[in-house]
Deep mutational scan, measured.
Amino acid sequence: KTVHVDGVEYRFNNPEEADKFVKRLVKEKNGNVEVRGDTYHVE
């Protein structure tokens, strides 16, 4: 899984860790998540 945040790319081998990371980011930023294939885009 890959997570894109503000143009920075984070790669996770463990999908659960990627999910936790995304949830935390969305809370912090009050942002939205767009999923494209295996990539999460957080804005």
Results as ranks from 00 to 15, higher is better:
residue 3 V to H: 01
residue 38 D to R: 01
residue 17 E to T: 02
residue 7 G to C: 04
residue 14 N to V: 03
residue 40 Y to A: 10
residue 32 N to L: 10
residue 20 K to V: 04
residue 20 K to N: 14
residue 4 H to Q: 09
residue 2 T to M: 06
residue 27 K to E: 11
residue 41 H to C: 15
residue 33 V to G: 04
residue 41 H to T: 07
residue 17 E to V: 00
residue 4 H to E: 08
residue 9 E to R: 03
residue 32 N to K: 13
residue 33 V to D: 05
residue 16 E to Q: 05
residue 20 K to D: 15
residue 20 K to H: 11
residue 40 Y to Q: 11
residue 32 N to Q: 10
residue 30 N to G: 14
residue 35 V to C: 15
residue 25 L to K: 03
residue 19 D to C: 15
residue 5 V to E: 01
residue 33 V to T: 06
residue 36 R to I: 14
residue 4 H to K: 13
residue 25 L to D: 02
residue 23 K to A: 14
residue 21 F to T: 03
residue 24 R to A: 15
residue 37 G to I: 11
residue 1 K to L: 13
residue 37 G to T: 08
residue 30 N to Q: 08
residue 38 D to W: 00
residue 24 R to T: 12
residue 12 F to I: 02
residue 35 V to T: 05
residue 23 K to V: 10
residue 8 V to T: 06
residue 1 K to W: 15
residue 7 G to W: 00
residue 7 G to I: 00
residue 2 T to G: 01
residue 20 K to C: 15
residue 10 Y to T: 09
residue 31 G to W: 12
residue 19 D to F: 05
residue 18 A to E: 06
residue 11 R to M: 06
residue 9 E to W: 06
residue 5 V to G: 00
residue 30 N to M: 11
residue 33 V to S: 09
residue 9 E to T: 05
residue 22 V to Y: 07
residue 9 E to L: 06
residue 20 K to M: 13
residue 22 V to A: 06
residue 14 N to S: 14
residue 43 E to F: 14
residue 9 E to D: 06
residue 28 E to V: 05
residue 39 T to G: 12
residue 8 V to N: 04
residue 18 A to D: 05
residue 32 N to Y: 14
residue 29 K to I: 13
residue 29 K to R: 13
residue 39 T to N: 10
residue 6 D to S: 01
residue 6 D to P: 00
residue 23 K to Q: 13
residue 25 L to R: 00
residue 33 V to R: 02
residue 6 D to Y: 03
residue 37 G to M: 09
residue 21 F to S: 02
residue 26 V to C: 15
residue 14 N to T: 15
residue 26 V to G: 03
residue 3 V to G: 00
residue 24 R to N: 14
residue 16 E to K: 03
residue 24 R to W: 12
residue 5 V to N: 01
residue 7 G to Q: 00
residue 27 K to L: 12
residue 14 N to I: 03
residue 42 V to P: 10
residue 6 D to E: 03
residue 7 G to M: 00
residue 14 N to K: 01
residue 30 N to C: 15
